[in-house]
Design a binder for these strands. Structure first.
Lengths: 341, 341
DNA sequence: TCCTCCGGGATTATATTTGTCCCACTGGTA
DNA sequence: TACCAGTGGGACAAATATAATCCCGGAGGA
């Protein structure tokens, strides 16, 4: 059954709603039988004509009977209803989870994909595809997109496809010295390629702060230019990291790790470390967007998968990423466990 | 998977159509990749725009890739394709069976329902519903429908629902003295009630033939009237009986049974017994339609289920019932075994 | 070099869905 | 008895989705 549902979601997602509608109608009829078309429409908050179309179908399928007193489910309909309940439960699994997480995390929208990035790295591909789809939905002509680094974001860039013209991709924040293919600059370039747009780079060494940063900004027009572009981005797409993992990559690792641990940092995003309660406890020196400074930008889309990242996701969404969260089933279920308590 | 497929067929038949289309397109792409939209449309015998809509969907779902050389299936698409193949195989089970039987039996159309009437009498209900649906498809205003007797036909009558106005239901042939609820007269009346039409009766005692029949016809205007109506029927709906079972019900049973056995009678319909080769070996005395005399009427729909009836179905379709056969899975598979040899 | 076929865009024609009435009828109620 | 609320069914215009049929610039192959 699960296999069939997964296949259904994959190959004909537009018909998920049809099955849901018919299930709801059938259930409502069973609940209130004998009931009329109009009463049904009111109870289900659907148009009378829509209800009618579905109800005519159910009648033709022999699942309900029409009498002058109203409609009632047949014996066969009863049987189908029970089987359908199981199907819809599976079908609904994710959307229920999505709604629950959206509410509990205070995020506008949550998208859950199948799998668990920790258990099966291949599911990152699907996560990336889903995030790319969300991005496509928000993208318009001449927009600017700011992207962070990370392996997850690399998959998003890979899966992106053109949905608008003349987009500009910029790194969301100054560089973090890791594998080049996971750096924000690289990801911006790859994504620009996939989207058929332009990209700008942010050549900023790691760990530059204070006066040094001021000097750099004063002398580098390009840097100022890109920084300005970033702050006006229409869409920000960022990954979420585990605090300890991200900290371990930095030059000042030992000292930083201890400090973060002492302060209870759980997640990292856009150069800032935050506790599970949403308190920001450390900010790396750089330019560009910070997690606590997303006021000037448009939509913010966070992407992260794998159950190990659950706490980090909770932390980052609590601290500021308020629009869309794209995650996977493994992380989603772990998040639910966390926020339950 | 089987359960889900059955559920889909029941609750969202349009879903299976969509899935089939997308499966066919995906398979065709895999077969001919890289291939263009137009070439696909020709190969699949579909409109270019239709192919395009589906292909756009498959692209958005990440199952195929577009390149200037044409479309090709992605790795993910490959996986989905394999799962889909399993789904469609289950789905197609019946329609493949239907087509095979239609061809081998020389019948225009075969409809197979789930179950086996012998193993599970409840499946007769579904058989009846399917037959009623077929009937509804052929029915028009002011038409005349001739129906035979039998328990199967009783279910058909029960499941009938109005699809046209001013229909007249008549018994297809003079009475056979059995349970009143299975007599053609009764069934005509029930069906007329369900269809909101009129019915005519054929009050003819069993086993009346020769001179006695002539005398009756000469004196009974109603009889002549109904007989004429029957011969111009637009749709004939009849059951199929096992030769030995039907013969056993008759008054002259012992002698008749032996004779039929000697002549190799397998099936009975409309008062005539026929061998599996289609040769009619005995005709009961009565008026109305005979199996070998369906020239003047419109569509002929035969309804019978249960694997024990397989040979009888083969016999009757061979003898003359040439339009539609509605049967169940049990009978259908048994028929396939018979006609294979 | 041409020439075919590719994906994508655009426009028009056609179906389908949807909202919104009305109608005749039925069962319960005053 | 006469009503009345609620039923399924019918009808029709408006809105929307779908389909047919072009055309276009461009990439590969001959």
């Amino acid at each position: 059954m699960e296999k069939a549902v997964a296949l259904h979601r994959r190959i004909a997602p537009e018909l998920v709603g049809v099955i849901e509608d018919r299930f709801n109608i059938l259930r409502q009829i069973q609940f209130a039988q004998p009931v009329g078309r109009r009463a049904l429409a009111v109870a289900l908050d659907m148009g009378e004509r829509v209800v009618r179309a579905q109800v005519d179908f159910l009648k033709a399928a022999g699942l309900i009977d029409f009498t002058p007193l109203g409609m009632s489910v047949t014996e066969e309909g009863q049987g189908v209803l029970e089987e359908l309940a199981g199907y819809v439960r599976v079908l609904h699994g994710f959307s229920a989870l999505e709604e629950e997480l959206a509410e509990r995390l205070g995020v506008r929208r949550v998208v859950v994909t199948r799998g668990d990035a920790d258990a099966d790295p291949a599911s990152l591909r699907e996560l990336g595809r889903a995030a790319a789809g969300v991005l496509g939905g928000y993208l318009g002509d001449n927009m600017t997109v700011a992207v962070s680094g990370g392996s997850t974001m690399a998959w998003v860039a890979e899966a992106a496809s053109a949905a608008a013209r003349d987009v500009t991709i910029v790194p969301a924040r100054g560089g973090l010295g890791e594998k080049v293919e996971y750096q924000a600059n690289t990801i911006a370039a790859v994504m620009a390629g996939k989207l058929g747009g332009r990209y700008r780079m942010l050549h900023l060494p790691d760990g530059v702060g204070g006066e040094a940063l001021d000097v750099l900004l004063a002398h580098d027009a390009n840097l100022r230019d890109v920084d300005e572009l970033i702050r006006k981005a229409d869409v920000v797409l960022h990954g979420i990291g585990l605090a300890e993992v991200m900290a371990a990559r930095r030059v000042i690792a030992p000292a930083l790790i201890n400090e973060l641990k002492a302060r209870g940092a759980a997640g990292e995003a856009l150069g800032q470390y935050t506790t599970i309660g949403g308190e920001i406890v450390y900010t790396t020196d750089s330019i560009g967007l910070r997690l606590d400074d997303l006021g000037g930008v448009g939509r913010v889309i966070a992407v992260a998968g794998g159950r190990r990242k659950a706490a980090a996701i909770v932390a980052v969404t609590a601290a500021g990423s308020r629009d869309v969260l794209v995650t996977d089933e493994g992380a989603a279920r772990a998040i639910r466990e966390i926020i339950k308590s």
